[in-house]
Design a protein around this nucleic acid. Structure first.
Length: 504
RNA sequence: GCGGCCAUAGUCUAGCCUGGUUUAGGAUUGAAGCCUUCCAAGCUUCCGAGGCGGGUUCAAAUCCCGCUGGCCGCACCA
């Protein structure tokens, strides 16, 4: 087995070679870290993941919205991103090493903290404490803020920011949504769209991007409903692969399969509605091709979680490139966001409960699409001792679902192959017609981009109207009637039948 | 952002140290053709490269500097 670093390069090499993703973009100008282009196959794959996500949310009674990616400064003032999500940085005046001012103080001065101080106060506090650059013992410069939002300007002079999360833009719709949902809570909406973070130094390719597609599902919900949640009752006997904070503190990475209701009983989840959100996140990731052998739900340690959060869990996926990768957060945001926007916008963002105004809580499922996209390619990568490569995508996620070949490039075989190709295309599947090179080479090409099924037209086809259907993973073939090609492919892709059922 | 290492066709790589011998070599992929009745077969032909910008020199892929990007370590990842 190759080292972890080597493997991520193998994955990226294949992705680049076969048109999954390219970068950093713009490549012909040298590229900017944290930006990638999706090639034709990568875009198909991403669309398939987004379709799974969209379908899962819709089936769970969420409604989709889309908001602008740019909002004026006040929005981010209210959300807390402008003041709260800055990093106070200080730079050594001599060696130019940059430090997080708050971390540096907590580390070097016992019991001291910069929490709640202004930038000027932080600077003078560091001087008072006599803190110097740990590296070269020189004086540190003044504390400055580094905001992770990308700044822009609307019109001539209105300051605005690219959204660092889609969630905030969804919250701004609360009054409209309340009307749409006819004043009834809970209200469930989701958004799939781009978000932007001006990372100081993006690394690890597709895992840390400055522009990425975010998915965020929101439930606007009242206290009482959080504890009494009908959808939870329907799934509470299902099990989830949990890694609790207690096991982590005891140094264990062992996942326990725990039924949802057991997890609530044991206090891993405080609220049934939150537990259901964790279940839904797990279900969405299962649909995206990950199973419990490479997925776990990890509870945040008490030190990691925000002070107001009773429950805090992540979905993590295991990769051969980077080990466990954090891919999704399930958050109990309380009523912080709506309260803040109510305060800043002077608009009423409450509902009446027992004749009193109450600002609802928000439960959130949040993740980026590019991370599971990368993890799926990583997980599906397979290579044999001859160096032949397979991407073993589940059929419903494969960019190209079926390829059609004439056994040889003869006119009498190419004609029928082209007809079958068009039939498959018309039926709504993505397919490819390939007559270049030997038949073996063409099978291999499709293996390498993860096409689960290939159809080959040979001389028997001209006699008895049958074709061979070849499965990627087993490399087995079966003859089926030409008229069955389209329906059989659809059944295979939807996993209604297995390939082996055709061979008996 | 700091330190170390690095950057040659789509991909992997040779040459660089010791400047001229190179029309930058190979493998693989890709395209066209021949052959071929099912798993990267064979033969022929073809496409395709020293990141960007400066400097040194008669001459730079080769030496030097800057930028950009990558990897590793540190920091960062709300």
């Amino acid at each position: 087995m190759s080292s972890e670093k080597d493997f991520s390069e193998i994955v990226s090499g294949l992705a680049k070679k076969r048109g999954f993703y390219w970068g950093p973009s713009p490549e012909i100008y040298g590229g900017s870290a944290g930006f990638y282009d999706l090639g034709p196959l990568g875009k198909l794959l991403k669309n398939r993941l987004e379709n799974v996500i969209r379908t899962s949310f819709v089936k769970a009674n969420f409604w989709e919205v889309e908001c602008p990616t740019v909002s004026p400064e006040i929005v981010w003032k209210a959300s807390g991103h402008l003041d709260g999500f800055i990093d106070p940085l200080t730079k050594c005046t001599k060696c130019e090493q940059v430090y997080r001012a708050d971390n540096l103080v907590e580390e070097l001065a016992d019991g001291e903290s910069l929490k709640g101080l202004s930038l000027e106060e932080m600077t003078s506090r560091i001087q008072e404490l006599g803190i110097q650059c740990p590296k070269c013992k020189s004086e540190l410069g003044s504390v400055e803020q580094y905001n992770l939002m990308l700044k822009t300007t609307l019109g001539l002079d209105q300051t605005a920011y690219m959204r660092p999360e889609t969630a905030t833009s969804t919250y701004l719709l609360f009054r409209r949504l309340l009307t749409f949902f006819r004043d009834k809570l809970p209200a469930m909406v989701f958004q799939i769209g781009n978000a932007y973070r001006n990372e100081i130094s993006p690394r690890q390719g597709m895992l840390r991007l400055r522009e990425f597609t975010q998915v965020e599902g929101q439930i606007f919900i009242l206290d009482a409903d959080e504890m009494n949640w009908a959808p939870y009752e329907e799934v509470k006997t299902e099990t989830l692969p949990l890694l609790t904070y207690q096991s982590q503190e005891s140094g264990s990475e062992d996942v326990q399969k725990v039924a949802l209701e057991q997890a609530v009983k044991k206090g891993y989840f405080q609220k049934p509605a939150y537990a259901w959100c964790v279940w839904l996140a797990h279900k969405i990731f299962s649909g995206m091709g990950f199973d419990d052998s490479n997925m776990r739900l990890r509870q945040h340690l008490p030190t990691e979680r925000a002070h107001y959060a009773a429950d805090a869990w992540d979905v993590e996926l295991h990769t051969k490139s980077f080990g466990w990768v954090e891919c999704c957060g399930i958050h109990d945001r309380g009523n912080y966001d709506l309260s803040r926007h109510q305060e800043f916008s002077k608009q009423k963002l409450s509902v009446k409960v027992d004749k009193k105004p109450v600002v609802p809580n928000v439960l959130e499922i949040a993740f980026g699409v590019e991370r599971p996209l990368f993890c799926l390619i990583d997980n599906c990568y397979d290579v044999n001792e001859k160096g032949e490569v397979w991407l073993r995508f589940p059929p419903h996620l494969a960019p190209i679902q079926a390829a059609v070949f004439p056994l040889m490039g003869k006119e009498e075989l190419v004609g029928p192959a082209a007809e079958i190709y068009h039939d498959i295309l018309d039926s709504g599947l993505v397919t490819q017609l390939d007559q270049g090179g030997s038949i073996g080479r063409r099978y291999r090409r499709q293996d390498e981009i993860g096409t689960p099924f290939c159809i080959t037209v040979d001389y028997d086809t001209l006699e008895d109207d049958t074709v061979t259907l070849r499965e990627r993973d087993s490399m087995q073939q079966v003859r089926i009637k030409r008229s069955e090609v389209v329906p059989v492919l659809h059944q295979l892709v939807k996993r209604e039948i297995t390939f082996s059922s055709l061979t008996t």
